Amino acid sequence: MKGPVVAIVGPSGVGKDSVMQGLAVSDPKIRLLRRVITRAPEAGGEDYQAVTEPEFQALVARDVFALHWQAHGLHYGVPRDIEQLRDGASAVLVNLSRAVLPAAQEVFDDFRVISLRASQEVLAQRLAGRGRESAQDIRARLTRADLPLPEGLRQVFKVDNSGALQDAITAIRAIIEAPVGDAAQPEARG
C-alpha cells in the first residue's frame, strides 16, 4: 500500500520544517522527502541535496525528477524515488511551492495539501527570531503570507500553527490517517 504525498505549504515562519520533523518523529511510517535545490549547502534550513544550476539541468535532462519548478530564483526538484518512499508509508511529506501544487496533483494519485497558517504576530516573531531577514524583508514576507492557493486543488486542509507545535502535529496526523476523500475537516486548529 502506498502512502499519500502530503504537500506542506505556507508562508515563511509558519513552521513547515518544524511540523514536518515533528510528524516524522511521531510516526516512523511518515517519511520526509529530501528535495534537490540549487541552493548553497551552507544555507541551512531543511535537509536538502544542494546542486549547482548546471547539475540541476543535467538531472532534468536525465528525467530524474517526478516534479520540478523554479521559485525565488532557485530550482527545486522532487526525485522519482518518492514512489519508493511511498511504499508502506503512512505518508510522504514534501515542502512545495504554491504554484506547483496543480502539477503535483496531476503527478501523484493520492495527493493532499496541508496549508499551514499562523497569525501575523506569530509569523513576525518567528521571522525576527531567525535573524536571517531585515525588518524590510520581514514586512515583505508578511505581505505575501495570505496569498491564496491555486484553484482546482481537490484535497486542501488548513491547519493553524500559531500555538503549540504538538497541536498542529496532532491535527495533521488526523488528516493523514483519514481515508482518501475523508481527511478530517477542511479547517483544523493546531
Results as ranks from 00 to 15, higher is better:
K2D: 01
P4S: 10
P4M: 04
I8A: 01
V9G: 01
S12R: 15
K16D: 03
D17A: 04
A24W: 01
V25C: 12
D27Y: 06
D27W: 05
P28C: 05
I30K: 01
L32R: 02
L32H: 00
L32C: 02
R34T: 07
V36I: 13
T38P: 05
R39G: 07
R39W: 06
Y48F: 15
Y48R: 10
Y48N: 03
Q49Y: 07
Q49G: 02
P54C: 09
P54H: 10
F56G: 01
V60R: 08
R62H: 14
D63C: 06
A71K: 13
A71G: 10
L85A: 00
L85N: 00
L85W: 00
R86G: 05
D87W: 00
A89S: 09
A91T: 03
S97T: 01
A99H: 07
L101R: 09
A103G: 13
A103L: 15
Q105R: 08
Q105P: 07
F108R: 02
S115H: 14
L116S: 05
S119I: 06
S119D: 15
Q120E: 15
V122I: 11
L123I: 13
R130W: 06
S134P: 08
A135T: 14
R141M: 07
T143H: 15
D146P: 05
R154V: 00
V159G: 04
S162E: 02
S162R: 12
S162M: 07
T170Q: 15
I175F: 14
I175V: 15
I176R: 02
A178D: 12
G181K: 08
Q185D: 14
P186C: 11
R189F: 13
